[in-house]
Amino acid sequence: MIAPIRLSDVTVAYRRRPAVHHLSGTFAPGSMTAIVGPNGAGKTTLLRALIGELPLDQGRIDRGGIDPRDIAYLPQQAALDRTFPLACAEVVAMGHWGRIGAFRRITGAAAARVADALAAVGLDGFARRPLATLSAGQFQRVLFARMLLQDAPVVLLDEPFTAIDARTTADLMRVVTGWHGEGRTVIAVLHDLEMVRAHFPDALLLAREAIAWGPTGTALTSANLFRARMMAEAWDEDAAICTRGESRRAA
């Protein structure tokens, strides 16, 4: 059984401006949490801190013994070159990296799992299609198929459905719910509140700090959403140095 991911007093700053500020809380094992918040609320920053890509200014993240490399992470509509001369199956097969690394060979069974993953995201028969011929939605399906192969206990998604058509969104949402059903911990940054309310049991409303964190119904009240917007828009040029956590550092 996988352990919870505990954040205690996590602060991540760019040029000393906190993007995530004194955040504490727990992602329960097997939970499915939507991270919601206005632009600049620190949502992406939090995900990158969770996979250990950003150093913490303060606080700590206890991943309960999960190696950060075992966390699957899908960045925002990436800077990936969609005309890159690779076939769909070759991209999906990258999901095997954690098991075979740079040098071990792809066995017949591993190749079969690539085909299964493509079928699971509705791209049956696309194995040899060049990436350049795919639509944005199909490209996102390929990246989801790659995540399926990663077989990760924790899955992080950063705005996976932005600029994706409705049908693809519905199909891929089923994949995400499937991960939840298999007991994986799912954390997704999303903008569509309807979708969050419909599919995500838990929500973290983030505006640099946690405005609310808990069951979606109680976290995403209109009062909380309004507070989040106010918090994110406040930007104090002359902010003093934050003293929270100061006592701990002195101790």
Partner: peptide, 22 residues
Amino acid sequence: AILWRPFVIETFDPGFLRAARG
């Protein structure tokens, strides 16, 4: 010939290898 796979992945999606500690 030996390093084809990491070279291709690192060229296509460096963020993926970074996240996977590749």
